[in-house]
Computed example of a mutant assay.
Amino acid sequence: MVRLRVRYRIRFAKAGLLRWTSHRDLARLWERIVRRADLKLSMTEGFHPKPRIGFPSALALGVNGLDEVVELELAERMPVAELFDRLVDDDQPGLTIKSVKRLPDGFGKAQLLRSDYVITIPPQADIAAAEREITQLKSQDTVSFERKKKIVTVDAAMQIPRIEIVDGQLHLSLAASDSASLRPGDVLDLIQACDWIENGALINRTRVVLQKEFETDDPDAIATVQSNPTNIPTTQQQPT
């Protein structure tokens, strides 16, 4: 017997106090949301079946995710508008459903191409000094950083396709890599701005860019929220 498996790609925002939720707890949260929405999840085979819920990229603790991606496999075919409404109706604090797409059979799973960030700059930061460090960073062929107590060296231009200060905020793009990938904190270290976070800077991942997007105008395959884009938070909200 062939079991029905229908995959949906969901873009969502995770902000406020929810940014202090770990990736593992976020996955569990999505399981609870799906079950509360009375959806039939597709499960893996074996002695310990698990729901088929996948993320192309984990979000670091304390980082706002304004356009994240999760993929769900359901054991039922549901109109995307109905699925969208059920997820929105859960009204989880800090979680905003932005779009739902039903992927065609055989469409590949989401794979990360790059992550775009906007990092707020604390008022006491020396922006001119940061600009000089950024210029120097752009002139380097390679950069080195520490990962798991080892020094890793990567191609600077490939891993950091964009870094610039615009309107008092640091705009940063980091490419995915099969080996160790740079993180926003690594880049702050490279531009001598490691004290920004403790002085109130906030890291926002504004976009998860995938290697292959599913583009469609079919209203039966996509449902989106009709509202203004998610605003970039500028102040930290600490857990109580």
Rank of each mutant, 00 (worst) to 15 (best):
Q124K: 12
A13D: 06
L170K: 11
I134A: 02
T240N: 13
D217Y: 10
Q111A: 15
I33A: 00
R207Y: 07
A130Q: 11
L174Y: 00
I127V: 15
R52N: 08
C194W: 02
R102A: 10
L202E: 13
D178H: 13
R132E: 15
V6G: 03
A201T: 03
A221C: 05
G65Q: 00
S177K: 05
T120P: 09
S177P: 04
P219K: 00
L59C: 08
R24T: 14
W30G: 07
S99V: 01
N204M: 10
I121G: 03
Q211A: 07
N64G: 05
R205Q: 11
K149G: 01
P161I: 07
D178P: 11
E133Q: 14
L174E: 03
S144C: 05
L66M: 05
P93Y: 00
E213S: 14
P229G: 06
A125N: 04
E131F: 02
E71L: 00
T240F: 14
L112D: 06
K149R: 14
L59E: 05
L29T: 15
A37V: 09
R86G: 04
A193H: 03
W30L: 12
T206C: 02
Q92D: 00
Q111D: 13
T142W: 02
T224D: 08
Q237G: 07
I33Y: 07
P239M: 09
Q211P: 02
R7Q: 08
T206F: 02
E71R: 04
N199D: 14
A27W: 08
A15I: 08
L17N: 10
M78E: 12
W30F: 15
S139E: 15
R52V: 13
D126L: 05
G185H: 10
Y117S: 01
G62T: 05
I10E: 02
R35Q: 10
T21C: 13
S181L: 10
D195F: 11
V70D: 09
G108L: 12
F145T: 00
Q192T: 06
G65D: 10
L4Q: 14
R77K: 15
A58E: 12
F55K: 01
E131L: 01
P233C: 06
P229W: 09
R36D: 11
P233Y: 03
Q136T: 13
P79D: 10
W30K: 07
A201K: 02
R11A: 03
V88H: 00
A221E: 14
I10G: 05
P161V: 11
